[in-house]
C-alpha cells in the first residue's frame, strides 16, 4: 500500500463532482428555468405578454435541450469525463462502481429535466391555474 500525494484529494473531489454531474446539471436547469420564467412573468413582458411568453417557452426548451445533451454526452463518454474531472487512475472495481452510479444518476436527472421542461408545451407561461 502506497502513501498518497496531495493529488489524491483533487482526485477525490473530482470523482465526487463527476458522480454528481447529472444532479448538478438538473439543479442548474431548475434554477435557470424557474428564475427566468418567474422574473419574466413578474414584469408582464411584451404587448399583452405574448412575445414574452414565447421567449419564456424558448428559454425553457433551450435550457432543457442543453441540459439533457450535456448530461447525456457526459454519461455516454463517462470514462473520458471522469478522466477529465478527476485525473485519477482507479482500480477496476472502484471505477465500475463510480461510472455505474454516475450513469444511473444521469438517467434520472435527464428524466427529471424532461419532466419539468416539457411543462411549457402544455401550460400557459404565466397564468395562474385558478
Amino acid at each position: 500500500m502506497t502513501r498518497m500525494t496531495p493529488n489524491s484529494n483533487r482526485q477525490g473531489i473530482g470523482t465526487l463532482l463527476f458522480i454528481l454531474t447529472g444532479p448538478i446539471v438538473w439543479a442548474a436547469h431548475l434554477a435557470l428555468i424557474y428564475s427566468s420564467q418567474s422574473s419574466l412573468c413578474s414584469f408582464d413582458p411584451g404587448e399583452g405578454g405574448a412575445g414574452g411568453r414565447d421567449a419564456i417557452a424558448a428559454i425553457i426548451l433551450a435550457v432543457t435541450a442543453v441540459g439533457v445533451a450535456a448530461v447525456g454526452s457526459s454519461a455516454f463518454r463517462a470514462r473520458s469525463a471522469h478522466g477529465l474531472t478527476a485525473r485519477a487512475d482507479l482500480p477496476a472495481e472502484t471505477i465500475t462502481f463510480i461510472v455505474t452510479i454516475m450513469r444511473v444518476l444521469a438517467a434520472l436527472s435527464i428524466l427529471a429535466m424532461l419532466y419539468a421542461g416539457l411543462g411549457v408545451v402544455f401550460l400557459p407561461a404565466c397564468d395562474s391555474l385558478r
Partner: peptide, 21 residues
C-alpha cells in the same frame, strides 16, 4: 399562493421525480 401554473409544474415534476428513487 397564486404562483403561475407553469412554476407549479416545475415543482410538481420534481415531486413526482423524487418518488422514483
Amino acid at each position: 399562493t397564486g404562483i403561475p401554473g407553469l412554476s407549479l409544474a416545475f415543482f410538481s415534476a420534481a415531486s413526482m421525480a423524487v418518488a422514483i428513487p
